[in-house]
């Protein structure tokens, strides 16, 4: 568990590839923080990034939040939808912070074909002292029947590391997810939460 929330601002960074659901996941966390009564700022870059580029979303909540952008070295948690994206944003984390990473590798479009995907990324991050939780989110999502709920599995894992009430998560999922997809998302979330334990 992360340290108990006080007036201190909590910084959570979501990173992934355009189309993986990182934006929706961060929006859900932001809404949960609102439910819990925090001041909140959430920011992202989109536009060209939607076409398979790297995307990142910053969520900050606490008593009073000024900057929407997390300072490097101050993120409490990184939720990465893909392994390379965990590497790309790890320097935003505090020493020893948690990384929840999907056990997926998405090859980027290569401008230089001689450069290879860094397969040893997770070991590298562990060697840097981060607490890395590798989650087979996409695999679990496919088992549940829809690969897209991988993001909800990851969110379930993240929720176990953040001190926000479970009923707030439940309430926001119900509000934000389309009714016909709510059941599968609930199961994905519960599965993630279970994996966090």
């Amino acid at each position: 568990m992360l340290t108990q929330m006080s007036s201190e601002t909590k910084n959570v960074l979501f990173a992934g590839v355009g189309g993986q659901g990182a934006m929706l996941a961060s929006e859900i966390l932001a809404l949960v923080a609102v439910e819990a009564g925090y001041d909140i700022k959430q920011t992202e870059v989109h536009g060209a990034a939607q076409r398979g580029g790297a995307v990142a979303s910053h969520v900050r909540y606490g008593e009073r939040v000024h900057s929407p952008v997390i300072r490097r070295g101050e993120a409490d948690l990184l939720v990465a939808f893909e392994k390379l994206e965990a590497l790309r944003y790890a320097h935003y984390l505090r020493d020893g912070a948690h990384i929840v990473v999907n056990d997926e590798e998405v090859e980027p479009a290569k401008l230089d074909k001689s450069r290879l995907y860094p397969r040893e990324g997770v070991d590298f991050l562990k060697s840097k002292g981060f607490k890395v939780i590798v989650v087979p989110a996409t695999k679990k999502a496919i088992e549940l029947g829809n690969h897209r709920v991988a993001s909800t599995v990851l969110l379930g894992v993240a929720s176990g590391l953040l001190n926000l009430k479970q009923e707030s998560w439940e309430k926001v999922l119900e509000k934000r997810i389309l009714p016909h997809l709510l059941d599968i998302n609930r199961r994905a979330f519960a599965l993630g939460l279970e994996l966090a334990k």
Partner: peptide
């Protein structure tokens, strides 16, 4: 100082947008 990323220690490929 602004903290740098880990690209000096491990190859972090860029991920440019691409045609879908």
């Amino acid at each position: 100082e602004v903290k740098g990323d880990f690209s000096k220690e491990i190859g972090i490929l860029t991920r440019p947008p691409q045609l879908c």
